[in-house]
């Protein structure tokens, strides 16, 4: 089965004009990115601010096209102008600021915006909107003004707007960065549901380490390059390396790491509270066994 997202030696340079220097400066935002995402996977991308995550995300939706290398979405080269709308339909995108991506003045009209642009027939738009709103649990809010919703609800509407376009994959660029903990939980649940129940490929960019624990695969970016790759467990067992890239680990993982360093027998990359407690109890009882 071909990968849904595939990048080979992807790079993006841009020219920066500054007041101080006469000659324009060439800046490379990302370079040498090789990426291959299986259909139905949940992928997380970590990296500090300015590491190039958003630039990479915009390539998946053809908001940017590579200056070197190639990006394919479902086998389509994103740099082909004639395929632009197809690429954008296949790879939907959700952004950070919930206010700045809702176009409609009523919730259901906003969700219908994408299908309208795709030229979907009126009756089909309605069924798509109903379906998308119920998948994100916002059907009861269809007649509301987006301005009256909470941050988490707005983000769910934005996700519904993408779902209504029937995409193969959804790229979410720090969708929870501006939300409170409850909003974050709501949005994450919706994303996981879409991935598990609907089989939508998800690519989640985030700063919250707790959000990537459920990912199938994690990539870490630093200074425009992919520097780490693996399962959450593999990534989070490398606490020191992550710190080098200005990232942290979930508190549970950190505690387990500290305990292990102090000599407690624990596995690498403990991810959840349950895992830590289960792993600690045999360590506690091991004295008994030896006796």
């Amino acid at each position: 089965m071909p990968s849904i997202i595939k990048a080979v030696k992807l790079g993006f340079d841009y020219v920066k004009y500054s007041e101080e220097s006469e000659t324009p400066e060439h800046v490379s935002a990302i370079r040498g990115i090789d990426l291959s995402v299986k259909r139905g996977d949940f992928i997380a991308i970590l990296g500090h601010n300015g590491s190039g995550k958003s630039t990479l995300a915009k390539h998946i939706n053809a908001l940017l096209v590579p200056t070197s290398g190639t990006m394919w979405i479902d086998g389509i080269d994103t740099s082909k102008v004639e395929e632009l709308w197809k690429v954008r339909q296949k790879a939907g995108m959700v952004f950070q600021n919930p206010d700045n991506q809702i176009i409609g003045t009523v919730v259901d009209e906003d969700v219908g915006f994408g299908p309208e642009n795709l030229g979907v027939a009126t009756e089909d738009i309605w069924s798509r909107v109903d379906d998308a709103l119920s998948k994100v649990g916002m059907l009861g809010f269809r007649d509301r003004s987006p301005n009256k919703l909470s941050g988490g609800q707005k983000q769910r509407v934005a996700i519904a707007g993408v779902v209504a376009m029937h995409p193969d994959c959804i790229v979410l660029d720090e969708p929870t960065a501006m939300l409170d903990p409850n909003g974050r939980r709501e949005v994450l649940e919706v994303i996981r549901d879409l991935n598990e129940k609907e089989g939508v490929t998800v690519l989640l960019i985030t700063h919250y380490m707790e959000e990537v624990v459920f990912a199938d695969h994690v990539y870490v970016m630093d200074q425009g390059e992919l520097v780490m790759e693996g399962t959450p467990r593999e990534i989070f067992s490398q606490v020191e390396t992550l710190k080098k890239y200005k990232l942290t680990v979930p508190q549970v993982t950190e505690l387990a790491y500290e305990l292990k360093a102090a000599g407690v027998k624990l596995p690498d990359g403990v991810l959840t509270r349950q895992e830590l407690v289960d792993a600690l109890m045999p360590a506690a009882d091991s004295g008994k066994v030896e006796a």
Binding site: L255, L280, S286, G287
Partner: peptide, 19 residues
């Protein structure tokens, strides 16, 4: 994290000596 670490380490050694 640091409080928890200290407390768990202490409890673990106590637990072992008890058992």
């Amino acid at each position: 994290v640091s409080e928890a670490k200290r407390s768990i380490l202490m409890a673990l050694s106590e637990h072992r000596s008890l058992s």
